[in-house]
Amino acid sequence: MKNLLPTISYVVQTQFLTNNAGLKYLYQRKFTSENILEARRKAQEYYDCAIEVLEEEGEILKDENGKIFYKNPQNYDGGIKMWLYVNHDFFRENIADKQGQKYLLAGHFEMNAERKRQIKFGKMMQERYFDALKIKEPFTPNKELLAYRIKPLLDSAELRKLRTSKPEEVAFIKFNAKELSEKILETACAFLNSKGGTIILGQTREMRQKNSTRKLQDDLLIVEKLLKCEFPKFVQNLKCCVEYLQGIRFVKIEVTKSSEDAFYNEEFFIRTKYGNAVDWAKTFG
Rank of each mutant, 00 (worst) to 15 (best):
L5I: 01
S9N: 04
Y10F: 15
A21H: 04
L23W: 08
Y27K: 09
Y27S: 10
Q28A: 06
L37W: 06
K42W: 06
A43N: 09
D48F: 06
D48T: 01
V53C: 07
L54P: 00
I60N: 09
L61C: 12
D63H: 03
D63N: 15
E64R: 04
E64H: 10
N65R: 07
F69Y: 15
K71H: 13
N75C: 06
N87R: 04
I95N: 05
K98P: 00
K98D: 12
G100R: 02
G100E: 04
Q101P: 00
K102H: 05
M111V: 01
A113F: 02
E114P: 00
R115P: 00
I119P: 02
K120Q: 08
K120N: 08
M125N: 08
P141L: 11
L146R: 08
A147C: 02
R149Y: 07
K151F: 14
K151Q: 12
A157G: 09
L159K: 08
T164M: 15
E168W: 10
E168S: 10
E169D: 14
K174N: 11
K174I: 10
K178P: 01
E182H: 06
I184N: 13
T187G: 11
C189H: 03
Q203V: 12
R205S: 14
E206W: 04
K210V: 10
R214E: 15
L216P: 03
V223K: 11
E224N: 03
E224P: 00
K225M: 08
E230P: 02
E230Y: 02
K233I: 01
K239V: 02
V242P: 01
L245P: 00
R271G: 07
Y274A: 06
W280M: 02
